[in-house]
């Protein structure tokens, strides 16, 4: 823990991250953003020729879609919902009084139609389903969004609002598992090219409760999730900076994603944790970008 606090403090001291008073909620400096932008250009260079359709959604999604996704079954502890004041003038008066005396003023807030996006690809599935059957060649999409997960922590690599860049592939089982394997190979190469020490390991999502233990075991037994790990705040417990997920036909069934021949589409996604990758670069090469190895600077800024 000490090491985590000290890396976070060093990032604050260097002005790379900006404290807000809430653990896991930080501002970013221009320099920090420049590293993320450079890494995203590297992603574009590696994945661009695949011809993915780019879509950008804001960090909030339709609550109805969120409910259909089943996120609350698996990760209720991580979800963030958007609530607003929807009362009358009289309610407003009592709200202000409540705030004045330091009582809980949030009790009367009502749920809006918006939920904070938990992963960049969540708004994609219903969007694609609405278009009808997928073309013969399947579907490939490029997404990026700020995502929210309620897990306050002093580990700078575990932020509550962070950016996820994703490629999502839809098609036959063979098509999407090939896509996942291709990105596992590419991911390792990309990280090596910027001087990061990586390992790939089988993984599971942080499902909630004892039932979650079983879902996690199932996920591992079936090799559904892999992570690319890089040491940031601990070498013993390196941080997942990319993940490679095969959903089988779970999302295809849930959202009604069909291939041209009428069969249910299989889906897979590859995600880059952009803040985590930037932090891995700062941790490995130092907080002064100008002092990074020439080879790394050349890959990022050419």
């Amino acid at each position: 823990m000490d090491m985590q606090v000290s890396f976070l403090d060093r990032l604050f001291d260097a002005g790379l991250l900006i404290e807000t008073g809430v653990d896991g909620l930080y501002g970013r400096s221009g320099q920090f953003e420049d590293v993320i932008a450079a890494f995203e250009r590297l992603i574009d260079r590696v994945g661009g020729a695949d011809g993915a359709e780019a879509m950008r959604f804001p960090p909030g999604m339709n609550r109805e879609f969120f409910e259909t996704s089943g996120y609350m079954k698996s990760f209720p502890q991580l979800a963030g919902t958007v609530h607003s004041f929807c009362g009358s003038e009289l309610d407003h008066m009592s709200l202000l009084k409540c705030m004045e005396v330091g009582d809980d003023w949030t009790k009367g807030q009502e749920a809006t139609d918006i939920v904070l996006t938990p992963a960049a690809c969540y708004p994609l599935y219903p969007t694609v389903a609405r278009r009808g059957k997928l073309p013969k060649s399947g579907g490939l999409y490029d997404l990026q969004s700020y995502c929210f997960r309620h897990e306050p922590s002093k580990d700078p690599a575990r932020q509550q609002l962070f950016r996820m860049r994703e490629y999502v592939c839809m098609g036959t089982e063979q098509h999407v598992t090939d896509f996942r394997q291709r990105w596992m190979d590419r991911g390792v190469e990309m990280m090596k090219s910027v001087g990061l020490d990586v390992a790939i390991d089988i993984a599971n999502d942080p499902f909630f409760g004892r039932a979650g233990k079983m879902l996690a075991n199932n996920q591992r037994d079936q090799n559904l999730k892999f992570e690319l790990l890089i040491p940031i705040t601990s070498t013993a417990k390196p941080t997942a900076c990319m993940s490679f997920n095969y959903h089988q036909d779970a999302f295809g069934t849930k959202w009604g994603l069909y291939l041209e021949d009428g069969s249910t589409a299989h889906t897979a996604c590859v995600g880059f944790g952009l803040e985590r990758i930037a932090l891995a670069l700062f941790h490995t090469h130092g907080l002064d970008v100008k002092a990074w190895p020439e080879s790394v600077r050349a890959v990022l800024w050419g």
Partner: peptide, 29 residues
């Protein structure tokens, strides 16, 4: 049988037989 239904089934079995599945048996097998 979906992953989620197998979880529901696990919880139902625990209640019916008054048992608790240890972590090492919480799997597909």
């Amino acid at each position: 049988l979906s992953s989620f239904a197998s979880v529901q089934l696990m919880l139902g079995l625990e209640e019916a037989f008054d048992i608790e599945f240890p972590d090492n048996l919480l799997n597909r097998k």
